[in-house]
């Protein structure tokens, strides 16, 4: 029924997304399925970059689309729909992190393993994911994901992350410098 879009980048048409959201607001579930196949990879990658645990990420991905379904009535088109979705995902992740803090020895950070098991993963890819991204703070990691992988503009990131643009820019450049040092 559904072909999962394998891409984590946002070559996603805003006009089509807007249309899906309008149809979901009218209760059209096929539109939700279409929205999922178009956006789930990029949303899942973002959630994974925050939670770093594939089991938790799957839970939050689930909750995120259920939230979208019940919230579309309040969605106002005009902004970038994917940024709206990412902000919802991030809010849900922050709740999860709060919940986690209560049991300190939570066994998280299993996500690189899941990727390592996949085909076509080069040694360099694993270095990027395992060694280099580890040097980044959580916020830097999220900003790098949103810009370099998902293709969001810095000002869109500042809206999603609720950070001033200047902070996003300086964190991004600091993160890239660290990554450059790691890769060279």
């Amino acid at each position: 029924m559904i072909l999962l879009n394998q891409s984590v980048s946002t070559d996603i048409d805003d006009i089509v997304l807007d249309q899906y959201l309008k149809e979901i607001a009218n209760g059209n579930k096929n539109a939700l399925a279409d929205l999922y196949s178009m956006t789930s990879a990029v949303v899942y990658g973002f959630i994974l970059s925050i939670l770093k645990n594939s089991h938790d990420a799957e839970d939050i991905l689930h909750d995120c689309y259920v939230s979208i379904y019940s919230a579309t009535q309040n969605y106002r088109s005009g902004g970038r729909p994917l940024a709206w979705i990412m902000a919802i995902a991030r809010n849900l992740c922050l709740l999860k992190i709060r919940e986690r803090k209560k049991n300190a020895d939570y066994p998280y950070e299993n996500w690189e393993q899941d990727i390592a098991d996949k085909k076509d993963v080069s040694a360099e890819d694993m270095i990027v994911l395992k060694d280099c991204m580890k040097n980044l703070s959580d916020e830097e990691h999220q900003i790098v994901y949103l810009h370099a992988v998902s293709g969001f503009k810095h000002r869109e990131i500042s809206q999603i992350m609720e950070l001033p643009l200047s902070t996003v820019l300086s964190k991004y450049h600091r993160a890239l410098k660290k990554l450059k040092a790691c890769l060279e």
């Binding site: 559904i2 999962l4 394998q6 891409s7 984590v8 980048s9 939700l32 399925a33 999922y36 196949s37 789930s40 990879a41 949303v43 899942y44 990658g45 994974l48 799957e58 991905l61 689930h62 689309y65 259920v66 379904y69 990727i115 996949k118 076509d120 993963v121 360099e124 890819d125 694993m126 990027v128 994911l129 991204m133 790098v144 994901y145 370099a148 992988v149 990554l179």
Partner: peptide, 17 residues
């Protein structure tokens, strides 16, 4: 970075959603 992340695929959980 983009290439490394391209291996991430979302789980197919649309039915449960």
């Amino acid at each position: 970075i983009k290439k490394a992340y391209s291996h991430i695929t979302a789980p197919d959980i649309i039915d449960s959603i």
